[in-house]
Design a protein around this nucleic acid. Structure first.
Lengths: 229, 229
DNA sequence: CGCCAAGCTCAGCCCGGCCTGAGAGTTTCC
DNA sequence: GGAAACTCTCAGGCCGGGCTGAGCTTGGCG
């Protein structure tokens, strides 16, 4: 439970806006949305969000302009910028302390991770768990590290994101479609065989000892869980 | 009791439309129907459904077009798409989060399960039970797991769906025809001996201990129930 | 008590979902 | 600039599960 933090999501594309707001609400945040910079500035005054998720390409004003308006108004609300891959490089110098950015197209897991990290820093939300555990499988979010049976395991970025998603949803069956939606970028067009491949990689790295934790449910999906219970 | 949620069912085939609306009404939902995209868009405004069940193949406009119309209109009504098997693969990226899809031909149990899952996510209907129990027989919907007398039991997908249907209707006599209609796809052409076969499989897996829970009523059907007192 | 319909069970075929190794294409890092 | 790591695709093969058909069992009824 993210402690009911208030978020303001600002993006002019309805699809992205909806994608984000639905995901973040489901993750337990209190979400307000805005479609342009003007609306965003107004809403910040009204809802006093703990964090603003802000597209840098807005129809009326640059995302950075919005951000400096916030700061000029005395708010030091942290901002998570959404930016195209090539814009990111030279623009990120504009970041204030506590701010961060994610490049489009992003994956939902990525956005959630960044939001949690920012809130942890700025609000001192130490109640946000930083360590996930299922049986003898451990994942440290801050240190990006994973252990199985006490042994350190090295994972690629995608493997890590997949495992993280599994662990946050331990005990819950996840369809391949769901996994694709959360772990892969929203514009990924390939087929779900990727998920099978990565589950296979993961198993080889973290699930070669008993008890097996990743289970296949034919025709349904996968689930990470410790036996018994 | 689904809490009186309002549904809008959109499909141009009268058979499917009726099949769905009758089933969903019987399951306790407040159902409105539409035969094409134009009508659907209008009705969404009027009835403000909690969820739209939407065929992707409509005579006048693509189901996805309808969905984006809804989103453009500011509604964040979740959508359950009905899609042919081969369309499903590559299109599922158009889904907003909170949306889901079912492939045609579907089984009614499948549709009901998806609808409940979506409502649970989007409305936060956490009061909807996720765990069913009859005597010492337990079924966990989220984890797709079943226990009898405290022992974990492994079921195939069809066995699971059948048991789920039994448990939701515990105490009610179900004819083989009813079971066929709900658990098997609507285009299933085989004979009802399948039901007998699967009841047999189920008994072997979950009903070998006292008290027996699955009872045969010759010439009538089956019923799952714990003995009196 | 014997017959018949209904129900039960099991072997077996077939299909499709899943896994995995190989490899192409791309990015990252030294 | 090259090597290593990583992502994704493809296809072959395996195996679990779906369904069928036939023979057997059970229960109802005259």
């Amino acid at each position: 439970m993210p402690g009911e933090a208030r978020l303001l999501v600002v993006d002019d594309e309805p699809n992205i806006r909806e994608l984000l707001s639905a995901t973040l609400r489901y993750a337990g945040f209190d979400v307000t949305t805005a479609a342009d910079g003007r609306e965003a500035v107004q809403l910040v005054e009204r809802v006093r969000p703990d964090l603003v998720v802000l597209d840098v390409m807005l129809p009326d004003m640059d995302g950075f302009a919005v951000a400096s308006r916030l700061r000029a108004a005395g708010r030091r609300t942290p901002v998570l910028f959404l930016t195209a891959r090539d814009e990111a490089e030279h623009k990120l110098k504009g970041l204030g302390l506590g701010d961060d950015y994610v490049t489009k197209p992003f994956s939902l897991e990525e956005v959630l991770a960044r939001i949690r990290a920012v809130l942890r820093r700025t609000r001192g939300d130490l109640d946000l768990p930083t360590r996930l555990q299922v049986a003898d499988l451990e994942l440290d979010e801050e240190g990006h590290q994973v252990w199985r049976a006490g042994r350190r395991v090295k994972l690629s970025p995608t493997e890590y994101k997949l495992l993280h998603y599994f662990m946050v949803n331990a005990g819950r069956v996840l369809s391949k479609a769901q996994i694709l939606d959360h772990v892969w970028n929203y514009d990924f067009g390939g087929d779900r065989n990727v998920v099978e491949s990565y589950v296979s990689y993961l198993r080889r790295k973290i699930d070669t000892v008993e008890p097996r934790l990743i289970h296949t449910l034919r025709g349904v999906g996968y689930v990470l869980r410790a036996p018994r219970q």
